[in-house]
Design a protein around this nucleic acid. Structure first.
Length: 556
DNA sequence: AGGGGATGAGTCC
DNA sequence: TGGACTCCCTCCCC
């Protein structure tokens, strides 16, 4: 400890001793008494060190407000001593004073949460629940070879290959597969850029940087012309881009007068296309619904308040079977079912109440009779039939996708290929210790039982993967995690393609290649692009060639 | 290598 | 109703 003579010339030091926020001046005897009473040796040493540092760094300051030193190791969550929260290695230790971070119930932490290991424990039994046991489920899968094999029981890492590309400069906010071309994936980022990647030809990618000025929230292909893609953005516009020519137009701009403060700036999150009616449905961040006529590409009808005034509508989904029915969800904690034929404020057919913000709500992809929602209360909710009782969900599945404001919101999505309409994919927020690495897997959940069917992760992917999309026809999963896009394929398939294709698609098996030194994070020579490929040759050539062909796009 | 910043929603008054 | 304050597993850049 610093000598008294020196310390006298420094600012007064206040010692914060205990949780009752008692403070005193820094007589050393008193300090030491307190320390010996209450602290173990390690803590004492640490604090002495800290004190020395503090004093030393303060030597340049004159005038001096008192310095407060905390002599207790306190929990960073509840600020109380006696325990600590945070990562111990790759395992996160929860603050015991707070409710479980996963299921939100008091009395235990996520480490001991019954929902942590086996998600079916989190299911609220549904009165109308169909009896589908795991075995039947597997059997059904085996009977239908066309079903995705990307869901073996609880394994994935050794059974899929993973390709990664990085051409976005901000985090990925949306992904969309091309409706007819199997290898084309569209990606949108926080900056508003739209990427088009042919993942069958590794370096075939285009990035459009001039369509939107901020977050690209959603993309939909024009069902009558799959060259045209509509995009919804927080800049308040809908973009309509021709992927052949790169030319884009803006059929809707909700902020024609430019920036007039945050209270007036409208953002578009939810958007979907109603093919039969020839309409683009979209909604703004103040609760209003708008429509665009697909043929004239111009606005039609008046804006209708569909969610609580002033709250964000985050999702719209048209029913795949009944063209008049669509589903919205928003920040007012509701998902609502609407009939296009009777659209007026308050005329929703059903209001599905949630405890917190509803990130997404989707009809099941084939029959359109089920509903799957993702809410920030860490629960997926399933309604088994929109013709049944909609007062409460058929099941609630506890799953960690709690909102963190710096992440793209998690959205559980149906597998469009699953004839039983039960499989859903969703990224997981909370990490798991996988051989010493804290990883955030992507979960495949059987929504009929709540069971975790599979989890996908890769030791190289240390970031959270909130954006996930299953291919409409192939056994392929696309993931947006931070600025990177991943394509997962069942291993045999990837290797098959690789043999046939000399350009070498994809493929880095799990752990085959270390990526950079920084903790497995992406760090390589080119900041705007990386591909985990076995052959790195001619990368820049091909990239530049492709880029130079289209003047409208911006690199990055 | 570690601090700061971008930034949304809940809560309290 | 709105402003101030808080927030628990981010992630990237400087």
């Amino acid at each position: 400890m610093a000598p008294v003579t020196r310390r006298d010339s420094f600012p007064k030091v206040l010692i914060e001793r205990d949780s009752d926020s008692e403070q005193s001046s820094s007589e050393e005897e008193e300090d030491d008494e307190m320390l010996q009473d209450e602290e173990d040796d390690a803590v004492t040493t640490a604090n002495r060190k800290a004190e020395k540092l503090d004093v030393a760094s303060d030597s340049t300051r004159k005038g001096k407000a008192p310095i407060t030193i905390c002599l207790k190791k306190v929990c960073k969550v509840c600020k109380k001593p006696g325990h600590e929260a945070g990562f111990k290695g790759a395992t996160y230790i929860d603050c015991p004073m707070k409710p479980c971070f996963l299921c939100k119930m008091p009395g235990h932490t996520t480490l001991t949460c019954p929902h942590r290991v086996s998600t079916e424990h989190g299911v609220v039994p549904a009165p109308r629940r169909k009896t589908c046991k795991p075995l039947e489920y597997v059997f059904e899968r085996q009977l239908r070879p066309s079903l995705p094999s990307i869901k073996p029981k609880y394994v994935i890492p050794d059974q899929v290959n993973c390709a990664v590309i990085r051409y976005h400069s901000r985090r990925i906010t949306s992904l969309e597969f091309h409706p007819t071309k199997n290898n084309i994936l569209l990606s949108g980022d926080k900056k508003g850029q739209l990427g088009v990647w042919d993942f069958g030809k590794v370096y075939e990618k285009v990035v459009y940087g001039n369509i939107h000025s901020c977050i690209l929230n959603n993309m939909r292909f024009n069902p009558t012309n799959d060259c045209m893609v509509y995009s919804a953005s927080s800049d308040g516009t809908i973009g309509c881009t021709d992927l052949e020519t790169g030319i884009s137009s803006s059929p809707m701009n909700l902020n024609p007068g430019g920036w007039q403060g945050p209270n007036n700036w409208k953002m578009i999150y939810g958007m979907d296309i109603n093919c039969e009616k020839g309409l683009v449905l979209l909604a703004d961040s103040f609760g209003f619904l708008y429509m665009i006529d697909l043929r004239s590409n111009s606005r039609t009808g008046d804006a209708i308040l569909i969610h609580k005034k002033g709250t964000k509508v985050v999702g719209i989904h048209c029913n795949p079977i009944q063209p008049d029915i669509f589903l919205t969800c928003g920040n007012d904690h509701f998902a609502r079912i609407w009939d296009l034929r009777q659209m007026e404020t308050g005329s929703s057919l059903h209001d599905l109440k949630h405890n917190r913000v509803v990130n997404s709500a989707y009809f099941s992809p084939l029959s359109g009779t089920k509903i799957l929602t993702t809410s920030q209360d860490n629960r997926l909710r399933v309604w088994d039939s929109i013709f049944g009782n909609m007062d409460s969900p058929s099941r609630e599945i506890v799953h960690s996708h709690d909102f963190n404001r710096h992440l793209t919101p998690f959205k559980a999505e149906w597998d469009p290929k699953d004839p039983s309409e039960s499989l859903a994919v969703v990224g997981r927020y909370i990490s798991e210790n996988y051989n010493g690495a804290a990883l955030h897997p992507i979960d495949f959940i059987d929504t009929s039982t709540g069971q975790l069917v599979a989890e996908v992760m890769d030791p190289n992917i240390t970031t959270i993967s909130p954006v996930n999309k299953l291919h409409p026809r192939d056994d392929i999963l696309a993931t947006g995690s931070s600025r990177s896009i991943f394509i997962w394929k069942p291993k045999e398939k990837s290797e098959l393609v690789e043999e046939k294709d000399e350009r070498k698609i994809v493929v880095c098996g799990r752990g085959e290649k270390k990526r950079g030194k920084k903790n497995g994070s992406i760090s390589d020579e080119s900041d705007d692009e990386e591909f985990m490929s076995k052959s790195k040759k001619s990368k820049s050539k091909q990239t530049e060639y492709k880029l130079s062909r289209c003047p409208t796009k911006a690199k990055r």
